[in-house]
Nucleic acid binder design. Structure first.
Length: 765
DNA sequence: AGCATCTGTTTTTTT
DNA sequence: AACAGATGCT
């Protein structure tokens, strides 16, 4: 499913489907629930089923809705249906993520929910900024009500389809949050904007309503198919139920073992809800895995089986055992990165293509060391997700201009660019405009004229000039391509000129990024025309707003680095699973993990393992620095769970037992025998550097990177302690709780932040 | 207005 | 360790 690999294992054609697959494909009418184990040919079933609906049952393509987890998956589905049923039918097929499908429907039914057709989709930072602004207007202190927390509470409400008035204030702070929620929704409406949740909520409410649009929506699709159903939230489910209400031809496909998005409102119990709402649903279980070797399947089962509350099922495979699971203990994350790079080089030498190799980690923070190693080894790689291209300031600026042109009422965008580049529109002027807007309940754009009359002539003329510049671009927009519009923005706003004038390394980089953005716009326009549609600004902005990490990944011949979450739905010949230590994976936040959370980690590990077709290499580090903390790590319980007969390397369960038993090893003890550590001796075994890299640190003096337990720290200092510094003299600790850096107020030089090692205790004055 | 600096803050996972 | 946001300074 990743890259251009055709499905090689299960042959094409309906005849080649196995029994349950065929049952799911040929299921005639009415609700259908498919439990699809990892690698069980789920995508085949969905594509064959759609092709059959189109060909055999003569269902018009525009009456089929297929919801996928990423837009890339939708595109692939389209392509595969085309291959089966002919290309002409699939352009009218409705296929996309919940969000993309709803955005498209909203462009049609915008008036019914009080939006203009050109509404803007607010991303995370837009949302947070808006919450902060609303909270401030309502007079709330942002320390007492941090926008981030308020926003996440608002999201929690919206995921349960609760309007501001219906929200449940459990804590006192929630009353404030509820009020902010109300103001937030009003501000969105004034800005002709929606957030991600609104895309779903608006359409759900419409589809459940008795309005003409509601009945139209309920009759619109004769068949609704939902992939990755286990990660559906309450709103998404209600939406599906409503859209399928008329004909009840709803087919949901999922795997409760792969439910990994509880934290954003997905609820496996939705499957129970489905069975309640559609008691007559046919149930099909796809249990044969075609993707992976038997060893990989066994490993995956060993990890998932202890999970509570699983749908009874039995994943099996007819594949040969294949290579054992390779487990590698390394000293720290740097050595892990070295190991990963070598393994990749070895796989490449064996003829495995770069696209067939993936490196997984639990959190994005782990990617940096890996990236450095890849760069050092000059191996092409791409990071999926993480710090995104579209997060860069200059890219956001240009997009903000484009969004403002499409929808001038979008306050978030106006505020972002009104003084970028600097044009003498300062805080005072902006405050004026905002307070007029707030007083009238309009957007900032609509308040400009009224506000301008209250301003002095200088600020007024600058503000009006900005308004006219945007208005002029807006007039020009329909007549030119998106690319040319973006180009014109850079020219007429002076944005490019400002960067050229600055003439330093940073502005050069920014210009390059902008050139890249322009190039990608051009590329998108070419693609869109190639698909026979006229590229429109609104479509482009929507695509940018709703693209997932995987959607944005190029198809270059590069090794992919990604979080396990991003790997969902993908597969690779070789998977390198890094950071397999307790606390890292399973991830343990500050508070101890609840059992449900641990189960989610378990399912996440299951997803990770089942991505591998041929080979799985898992690594753990004795010492890991993450989020600025260096700590000892123990091998993950998910490694311990693996049966020793399918494992090679030093991952045998009894080794773990020994290591557990002796929490502190004897100084100088080697716990990695080189012969054992080498899963394939060729690349890893015969390296002179191995002595250094695989031996565990011999006591505290071995390296400069020390674990938190044995820091080379000065005295443990607390607030109020009197200290002495060689140069600054006497001082008093102002903050710091035993950490190595403390803040000290000196009599001589004022307050300094300083490493505790340079301090000694002094007698209290 | 704009810069620098400092501070606190944050890091699970994302449409 | 890295970042964003805020504050204070020029």
């Amino acid at each position: 499913m990743h890259g251009a690999d055709p499905p090689t294992r299960a042959p094409a054609g309906t005849a080649a489907l196995n029994d349950p697959q065929r049952a799911a494909v040929e299921h005639e009418a009415g609700p259908l629930l498919v439990f699809a184990g990892a690698g069980s040919g789920k995508t085949r079933v969905i594509t064959h089923r759609i092709a059959r609906l189109l060909e055999h049952h003569r269902v018009p393509p525009y009456r089929v809705l297929a919801v996928t987890f990423t837009n890339k998956a939708a595109a692939e589905m389209r392509a595969r249906v085309s291959a089966l049923a002919g290309p002409e039918v699939t352009s009218d097929l409705w296929a996309g993520t919940f969000h993309a499908v709803c955005a498209r429907l909203l462009r049609r039914y915008h008036a019914e929910v009080g939006l203009e057709r050109s509404f803007t989709i607010y991303d995370d930072s837009d949302q947070r900024a808006l919450v902060a602004r609303v909270a401030k207007t309502l007079g709330y202190d942002d320390r007492q009500h941090p926008p981030k927390q308020v926003l996440s509470w608002i999201h929690a409400q919206k995921r349960e389809a609760r309007a501001p008035g219906e929200a449940e204030p459990i804590l006192p702070a929630h009353a404030a949050a509820a009020e902010i929620y109300g103001g937030y929704q009003r501000a969105l409406a004034a800005a002709n904007a929606v957030d991600f949740d609104d895309l779903l909520l608006h359409v759900m409410r419409l589809a459940e309503s008795e309005s003409p649009a509601g009945s139209e929506l309920r009759a619109r699709f004769s068949h609704v198919l939902v992939d990755e159903f286990q990660d559906t939230n309450a709103v998404q489910y209600r939406l599906v139920r409503a859209l399928a209400a008329r004909e009840r031809n709803v087919c949901v496909v999922g795997d409760d073992d792969q439910s990994i998005y509880r934290w954003r409102g997905a609820d496996v119990r939705i499957i129970l809800g489905f069975r309640r709402d559609f008691p007559d649903a046919a149930v099909v279980k796809l249990e044969q895995n075609y993707r992976s070797t038997a060893n990989v399947v066994r490993a995956a089962l060993a990890v998932i089986e202890p999970a509570r509350e699983r749908e009874p099922k039995r994943l099996w495979t007819a594949s040969p055992p294949g290579d054992p699971i390779c487990i590698r203990g390394v000293r720290d994350e740097r050595e892990e990165a070295t190991m990963v790079v070598r393994q990749v080089a070895e796989e490449r030498a064996r003829g495995v293509g770069p696209r067939d190799i993936a490196v997984f980690y639990r959190t994005h923070a782990q990617s940096r060391v890996l990236e450095e190693a890849f760069r050092g080894a000059r191996i092409p790689y791409q990071v999926i997700g993480g710090h995104r291209f579209f997060d860069r300031a200059e890219v956001k600026d240009l997009l903000a201009y484009l969004r403002l042109i499409a929808n001038p009422r979008s306050d978030a965008d106006l505020l972002r660019v009104v003084n970028v580049p600097t044009r003498g529109i300062g805080d005072k002027t902006i405050d004026r405009v905002l307070s007029v807007a707030a007083a009238r309940g309009t957007s900032a754009w609509d308040a400009i004229d009224a506000a301008a009359s209250e301003l002095g002539s200088g600020p007024r003329s600058r503000l009006v000039a900005f308004r006219d510049a945007v208005a002029e671009l807006r007039r020009a927009a329909p007549g030119i391509t998106v690319h040319d519009l973006a180009e014109r923005v850079l020219e007429t706003t002076g944005y490019r000129a400002a960067l050229v004038k600055a003439d330093d390394a940073e502005s050069d980089a920014r210009l390059e990024n902008l050139a890249e953005l322009l190039g990608s716009i051009q590329e998108w326009e070419d693609e869109t025309r190639g698909a026979g549609r006229e590229p429109e600004l609104a479509d482009y902005l929507e695509r940018v707003a709703l693209a997932s990490a995987v959607d944005l990944a190029g198809d270059e011949g590069a090794v992919s680095l990604m979080t396990v979450h991003a790997a969902k739905g993908l597969e690779f010949r070789v998977v390198l699973l890094t950071g397999m230590e307790e606390e890292v994976f399973p991830y343990r936040g500050l508070d101890g993990a609840a059992p449900e959370e641990l189960d989610e980690e378990r399912r996440l590990a299951y997803v990770a393992i089942t991505r591998a077709r041929e080979r799985l290499v898992a690594s753990f580090a004795t010492l890991r620095t993450l989020f600025g903390r260096t700590r000892w790590g123990e091998p993950s319980r998910f490694l311990e769970a693996l049966p020793s007969e399918i494992v090679r390397g030093e991952g045998l369960a009894r080794d773990f037992g020994q290591r557990r038993a002796s929490s502190r090893r004897a100084p100088g003890e080697r716990w990695v025998e080189p012969e054992e550590a080498a899963c394939s001796a060729s690349a890893w075994g015969d390296d002179p550097a191995r002595e250094v890299t695989t031996a565990r640190p011999t006591g505290a003096a071995a390296r400069s990177a020390e674990p938190a337990e044995a820091p080379a720290a000065g005295p443990r200092l607390r607030r109020g302690d009197a200290v002495r510094h060689a140069r600054f003299g006497r001082g008093v600790v102002e903050s710091g709780d035993g950490a190595s850096i403390v803040s000290v107020r000196f009599a001589t030089v004022g307050t300094k932040r300083i490493d505790a090692r340079f301090l000694e205790r002094a007698a209290p004055s």
